[in-house]
Design a protein around this nucleic acid. Structure first.
Length: 772
DNA sequence: CAGTGAGCGAGCTTCCGCTTGACTT
């Protein structure tokens, strides 16, 4: 009989711990939660004080079976799940499902996977904290009630398979409101004036430095006037200040900050980062990657100190303990750090190595001394102006952690590298080399990237480390938001330059508003958001989660009863769902764009049954209204009357090719061109049926014909149903409308009919084995 | 495959948080 069974949540953790405990302990993993509310119905009995109905999901049946048999053979079962709400609930579910009597249970917790922490935990067992379990049940039941009542309402009012929830709906709201903020941003411009000055020192060495006029000049005329005034002015050093300053390293990574930095520095998507981190974790390279804690174990601190001292010298080491500032953090784990900080690099693929390097640098830098910086500022007086120009310089006196790592920022500020300023003295005369007044446009706030949205959600206390990546995927899968690049637009900027006493005016074009991998709301996303905000303002409120979290805390402390908390929320919420179902019409987002000049009829944009659409004329009228679809990048919110009327010119003829018309239009499957009754999809971003030229359309047709030729690799006279074709993912066999992949060992050009049949037979057998 | 622009209608969709693989497309 095995003396002790220890159950943890993660198999990788189980593996590590088994090295720390003796032969008397067998370690197993629960793979997270083992039970959940039934999926086929609400899973909550509303008549019995919200009694949850839990079931073991199919993919957990084997885990439970295995744990059951291990538990029955053990003398004691140590429930070592995480020390947070969810972990406590998993421990309780385990006790219930495994049918463990209280005297057979030991509940233990540890925040770090070190020998000492685990030994200490074993020596300090406790019982299951039922208050904490109840807080989790309240959280689970509330989320189920909200999600399973709001989603069906959307199926009824908007379209099937949509969803809503406490977390995802707020995430969508953030994206929608950001988009509107940008759309409503009024572009203003001003002039920034900078001068290059020449200072000649006593030894005749001369230096050039740049200084900026501290006032933004609103108009061209005023900007030019200032340059005029500087044309014959005298320049001198009015003031010189040196200020010491310090920079401190950022805290070690949490899930959220890792996702942000990997996005900014390495260009990884949130899910890509998590997949790579998972692999590093399973390989024992890093600590657990789903954490909200910035804490490092004492062992890690000691390791870091040793590495820093030998690598950079003792003056670079400074041991630090970081405190989390995150709302609702549960800190069941350590920060994300290398398991062994002495491993500066690890084996693995390029991506894994890059992520590891980032984690290694961030962790190590967090334990290094601060950088000491001297900031210098020079005021350049102008005899004809009241305000002096200002030059600022920065000199690093001691680099400290900057030797290794600097956190990047979301704003694309064009911080020019500030260097050393010349050794000037107050009163020195200097001369002007050149001066520019450059037009600058105010920037709208940047759209969210996946990672900056995670950051915002974390600030609001919404979502957990384990759900950031899935939430980001969900809102995209539901079609509420789309991640994409958008090309920028050009605009002119005016520049006045003063050089050798002459003022010249030039115009430059700059690109603005280009977006890369940013989140844009879709029309459906905006429509659903407005509908939810209007009817369920309390749940869509950015503080909803924070306020229910306060109540969960009270439940966890034992000062509030969980079903009572739910009962103060649910009846009113349910009533609101019922009222909305009855009294609210289907939202269409309809907007009148103006009138069609010819007929005088109204032009509308609205959400139709098959997506956003345009309509000329009224729905009830005798002569039916005309309809048209929107193009991919047009949105209901920003489309203009002119753009709308343009779309009614489709389908249009581009001209003739091989004595037949080529038509361009928008169909059920998006924009297309049509020739001799064959359709060719317009897939590229810059393909537009309104603007495409005849020669581009012909090129497209010929390209497609070329592809068609290459499509068929081989046909068999004996069996015309079977073909070897070239597809998007390489060669495959097509047979009776089914496709079969060709194993790599075969050459598709020389396959015989018999071999094809073998491949088909083999792959069908494989499929059958799997489904049984 | 490339109309459509509702309201007879089968049956389905959905939440958030814990965890890993098994999966094509």
């Amino acid at each position: 009989m095995q003396e002790n069974l220890v159950i943890v949540e993660s198999p990788a953790k189980a593996k590590t711990i088994s090295g720390f405990l003796g032969k008397d302990f067998i370690i197993k993993s629960s793979f997270g939660h083992i039970r959940d509310l039934s999926k086929d119905d609400l899973g909550i009995d509303l008549k019995k004080k919200y009694k949850p109905y839990y079931i073991v999901p199919n993919d957990k049946k084997n885990v439970v079976k295995d744990l059951k048999s291990a538990a029955s053979e053990a003398h004691l079962v140590w429930l070592a799940t995480d020390e947070d709400r969810e972990g406590e609930a998993i421990a309780w579910h385990l006790a219930e499902v495994l049918n463990l009597p209280p005297e057979k249970i030991r509940r233990i917790v540890f925040h770090e996977i070190t020998r000492d922490a685990i030994k200490h935990a074993i020596n300090h067992p406790r019982g299951i904290n039922h208050d904490l379990v109840n807080a989790q049940q309240a959280r689970r039941v509330l989320d189920r009630l909200v999600g399973f009542e709001l989603s069906p309402l959307l199926w009824k009012k908007v379209k099937p398979a949509l969803s809503a929830g406490r977390v995802q709906s707020v995430a969508v709201r953030l994206i929608v409101e950001k988009e509107r903020e940008i759309n409503n941003f009024s572009v203003s411009s001003s002039y920034r004036i900078t001068g290059n000055f020449i200072y000649t020192a006593k030894d005749n060495k001369s230096y050039i430095f740049n200084a900026e006029y501290p006032v933004k000049i609103p108009t061209r005329e005023e900007a030019k006037a200032i340059l005029e005034k500087c044309r014959n002015a005298q320049f001198s050093i009015l003031d010189l200040t040196r200020k010491p300053s310090k920079k401190s390293p950022a805290a070690p990574f949490t899930t959220s900050t890792l996702q942000q930095e990997a996005s900014r520095k390495l260009g990884f998507s949130v899910s890509q980062t998590m997949t790579l981190a998972q692999r590093l974790y399973e390989a024992g390279r890093i600590t657990y990657m789903r954490t909200d804690s910035v804490n490092l174990s004492n062992m890690a601190l000691a390791m870091a100190k040793k590495v820093i001292e030998s690598e950079f010298g003792p003056e670079y080491s400074r041991t630090r303990n970081f405190k989390t500032k995150t709302k609702g953090a549960q800190e069941a784990h350590e920060a994300i750090r290398p398991t062994f900080i002495e491993n500066k690099t690890i084996p693995g693929n390029r991506q894994e190595q890059r992520l590891y390097d980032l984690i290694w640098k961030r962790t190590t830098a967090s334990q290094m001394s601060e950088a000491i910086i001297e900031k210098t500022s020079i005021k350049v007086g102008v005899s004809t102006l009241e305000e002096p120009f200002i030059a600022s310089g920065e000199v690093i006196k001691f680099d400290g952690f900057l030797k290794l790592y600097m956190e990047s920022s979301d704003e694309d500020t064009e911080e020019q590298s500030k260097g050393l300023l010349p050794p000037v003295n107050i009163g020195d005369q200097i001369t002007l080399q050149s001066m520019d007044a450059t037009q600058r446009y105010a920037q709208a706030s940047p759209r969210y990237t996946e990672a900056s949205l995670v950051k915002k959600l974390e600030e609001l206390g919404i979502g957990r480390p384990s759900t950031y990546a899935p939430t980001i995927s969900t809102i995209q899968n539901r079609g509420y938001a789309i991640k994409e690049d958008r090309p920028g637009k050009e605009r002119d900027i005016f520049i006045f330059s003063l050089e050798s006493g002459q003022i010249k005016e030039t115009t430059k074009t700059e690109i603005y508003g280009a977006e890369k991998a940013k989140l844009f709301p879709t029309d459906i996303g905006m429509l659903v958001n407005d509908f939810l905000v209007e009817n369920f303002n309390d749940i869509l409120d950015f503080n909803f989660t924070a306020s229910v979290e306060k109540e969960f805390d009270k439940i966890a402390e034992g000062t509030m009863e969980w079903t009572g908390m739910i009962d103060r929320f649910y009846p009113a919420f349910h009533n609101q769902v019922v009222q909305t179902t009855i009294s609210q019409p289907k939202p269409t987002g309809i907007r009148n764009l103006g009138v069609e000049p010819v007929t005088g009829k109204n032009v509308y944009v609205k959400m139709g049954p098959f997506g956003p659409m345009l309509q000329i004329g009224e729905s009830g009228d005798q002569d039916k209204p005309k309809f048209a679809s929107l193009l991919k990048h047009q949105s209901m919110e920003t489309i203009t009357l002119e753009e709308a009327l343009n779309l009614f010119t489709l389908p249009r003829s581009l001209g003739q090719f091989e004595e037949q018309d080529i038509l361009a239009g928008i169909g059920k499957y998006g924009p297309y061109i049509r020739h001799k009754n064959k359709f060719y999809s317009l897939k590229k971003d810059n393909d537009n049926p309104l603007t495409i030229k005849l020669e581009d359309a012909i090129a497209l047709i010929q390209e497609k014909r070329e592809q068609e030729k290459k499509r068929i690799i081989k046909k068999f006279v004996e069996n015309p149903d079977l073909q070897i074709l070239n597809g998007r993912w390489g060669p495959y066999i097509s047979y009776h409308k089914n496709n079969y992949r060709i194993p790599k060992k075969y050459n598709p050009e020389t396959l015989s009919l018999e071999q094809c049949m073998e491949i088909i037979k083999y792959s069908q057998e494989k499929k059958n084995n799997k489904s049984s």
